[in-house]
Each structure stands twice: as structure tokens, then as C-alpha cells.
């Protein structure tokens, strides 16, 4: 069930750039348009391109269901955990206690237009990464299950 050599060669050239672009959107979610959902969808698209161009059975190490399940649940747990961490310290649920604190992601931001710094945003970048990883795992997971069902349909 693999596609032609043209498609596979184009996929080999394109998919690193698509995935890197997706990670860029995830990591710069608090500075540029985009965020966790959009970037995760882009990374999932890059992975889906590989899955469709090659057969989904030929990629045992790169994309496995256990790893995707781990991504899916780990992303959601990291998201909730980031919200609960504020409660442990003594703030309300989902309080952005990292913003402006001076530690990681804690550089204060001045009011008004400025070019922006990657090391800002409190726990918004952490949440962006969590949601991005979750969306990535979830969408590839759906595609993997649908492809395996398609395989079964062809065999029957």
C-alpha cells in the first residue's frame, strides 16, 4: 500500500520542513499567530504525509501506537498538571504564576509593541507544548486507526 516513487521522494524532502515548521508554531505560540492546536495539527500533517506515502506497517520505530498514546495522555496530563502546580504553590487553579517571576519563561514584558522574547509568557509556552504534543499524538492516532481498519477491509 505504498505510493509511487515520486510521492515518496517528495515526502522525504518535504516532511522535515513541515515538522520543523509545526514545532516553530508551537514554540512561538505566545509571540506569533498560532499556538498549540495549530502547530500540533501541522506536525500531525507532516507525520500523516509519511504515513500515507509509505505503508503504515513499514514504520514500526518512528510511529508506534504506544508512543502516540503516551503523547496523547502525557500532553493532557502536563496541561492539567501545569494548572494544578499553581494550586500547590498557593494560587488559584490555572493562575499564571511564572509570568514575570524572572525564572524560566519569566522575563517581564513591557506594555506596547515590542519584538518579543522567547523566554516570556509564564506557563503559556508550557501549555502550548502540552497541547501541541497532545494534538499531534491524537490526530496521528486517528489516522493510524483508520488506516489499519482500511487494511482490514481490503483483506476481507
Amino acid at each position: 500500500m505504498r505510493m509511487s516513487k515520486i510521492v515518496r521522494t517528495a515526502t522525504d524532502i518535504l516532511y522535515p520542513f513541515i515538522i520543523i515548521f509545526g514545532f516553530y508554531i508551537i514554540l512561538h505560540g505566545h509571540l506569533t499567530p498560532g499556538g498549540g492546536f495549530q502547530g500540533g495539527a501541522v506536525v500531525a500533517t507532516g507525520t500523516a504525509l509519511v504515513l500515507v506515502a509509505y505503508s503504515w506497517k513499514e514504520l514500526p520505530g518512528l510511529v508506534s501506537k504506544n508512543l502516540l498514546w503516551f503523547q496523547e495522555s502525557g500532553g493532557l496530563l502536563l496541561f492539567i498538571g501545569a494548572g494544578l502546580a499553581a494550586m500547590i504553590i498557593g494560587f488559584p487553579f490555572f493562575y499564571n504564576w511564572l509570568a514575570g517571576s524572572g525564572s524560566i519563561f519569566g522575563t517581564p514584558v513591557a506594555f506596547g509593541p515590542n519584538p518579543g522574547d522567547l523566554n516570556t509568557g509564564g506557563f503559556l509556552p508550557i501549555m502550548n507544548i502540552a497541547v501541541g504534543v497532545e494534538v499531534w499524538g491524537g490526530l496521528v492516532m486517528v489516522l493510524l486507526y483508520l488506516l489499519s481498519a482500511l487494511e482490514r477491509e481490503e483483506r476481507a
Partner: peptide
């Protein structure tokens, strides 16, 4: 911008001011 430390106000609304909404979306 000052409270959340983000230059992108869409992200500051969806992930900070309305974090519950995004939690529901993820769920």
C-alpha cells in the same frame, strides 16, 4: 500583555484568561 507576559493576545486569552475553555477543548 503585562499580566501574562505574552505579545500574542489571542494566546493569552485562550490559554490564560480562559484556560478552562482550552482544557475542555483538549478533553
Amino acid at each position: 500583555q503585562v499580566q501574562t507576559g505574552t505579545n500574542n493576545q489571542c494566546t493569552s486569552v485562550t490559554f490564560d484568561f480562559r484556560g478552562f475553555d482550552t482544557l475542555g477543548e483538549s478533553t
